[in-house]
Design a protein around this nucleic acid. Structure first.
Lengths: 205, 205
DNA sequence: GTCTATAAGAAGATAGAC
DNA sequence: GTCTATCTTCTTATAGAC
């Protein structure tokens, strides 16, 4: 891996743990295995490293087109998958995805960094919102809407139904970010949530 | 208001906007209307101001005994209130409480500060968790559990039901913290949420 | 308790050799 | 591209007069 990339990677790790202001250029350099002044051959200044991280992340996010996208690409296809899936399989899929977003190294570090820095910069708040609110609700709304259209689920308000599906997932994700030792507990609750959601909105098994 | 108190208050404002590391002792002093060195007659150092804020907040939290406590004191009493309340009144009450927690000056600044600083200090993460996860779920679980016992609501799993009630409130609160201009939208969604919650869990009107 | 002056020490960034 | 040496600036905190 080239040095420029490694600087960005180590900087992300440190920023996500301590926040921008508490990370010193020397800390980043040390992790990369060079001295601070060498770093300035790769980036104009400290802010440029941060900006590069944001850009890289936006690039990756567009590739993935939003978070918690179930299969990840196309809600139409995913709805077909869901339709033929048992409740148990759906729960397992939901938990796998939860664990992926919780543990995936890049996703996790970036989410933590955004959480810490979101109030410093309005743009970061927008990025966070898109990733963890608008995109998931929009995608999952489309998915659940199709299941409703097919009569697999029943509701008068797909938007609120989607909120009921996603809000607990979101909240448990932030719980585990803060207190990772509560992951097992969160998984238990998540499982019960999926089961009850299915029951409430009338899934046929 | 005495100077010591005012220092704490202005410091909280600044910490909640910029985070601890980005606030300088001189900034706090300026807001209070004194010079930085004078501030050291009231607090040993910058950290002591932060610690005093945490202590003050713990004091206030214990007074209030947790967030989103509906009427605020006793779930047993509150359940009686709910029992005799129309759906519309309940929605109005829910929204009022949401707005209170969103706008109350102290609550809001403290929540933002905790959000920014939560990864710097494990203890802050715990404070956040208690305030915005454990206490609300515990209190509201008790409340909803009583309504279930009285046959006003129906469910097999009160814990998940409480999650379905609270998680959307929590998520919308964090949305408005990030993008205050979305408050009206959040209130709309919140209203629909309360209405649908009532329908799902079978409230009698 | 507040001030001015100032010490002490970070931390970001540059110069210039290799 | 990396290093050592160094500059500059910013920030915390203290000293001591009023």
């Amino acid at each position: 891996m080239n040095t420029k990339q490694r600087i960005m990677d180590e900087a992300l790790t440190l920023f996500s743990e301590k926040g921008y202001a508490n990370v010193f250029v020397g800390d980043i350099a040390e992790r990369v295995g060079i001295k601070a002044p060498s770093l300035y051959k790769h980036y104009k200044n400290k802010q440029a490293i941060f900006d590069a991280i944001i850009e890289e992340m936006n690039r990756r996010f567009e590739e993935k087109a939003g978070m918690l996208h179930i299969a990840g690409n196309d809600a139409r296809k995913d709805a077909v998958i869901y339709q033929d899936m048992s409740e148990e399989s759906m729960i397992q899929l939901g938990i796998s995805l939860f664990k992926y977003y919780l543990h995936d190294d890049y996703t996790k570090r970036f989410r933590k960094m955004l959480t810490i820095e979101q109030f410093h910069d309005k743009e970061l708040a927008s990025v966070y919102m898109k990733q963890y609110y608008d995109d998931p609700l929009s995608y999952q709304g489309m998915l659940l809407g199709m299941l409703v259209a097919q009569g697999i689920l029943q509701t008068e308000n797909v938007q609120v139904m989607t909120l009921h599906f996603y809000a607990p997932i979101y909240m448990l994700l932030t719980v585990c970010d803060r207190e990772p030792e509560r992951e097992e507990e969160a998984i238990q609750i998540l499982t019960a949530h999926f089961r009850q959601f299915d029951r409430i909105y009338g899934r046929t098994k």
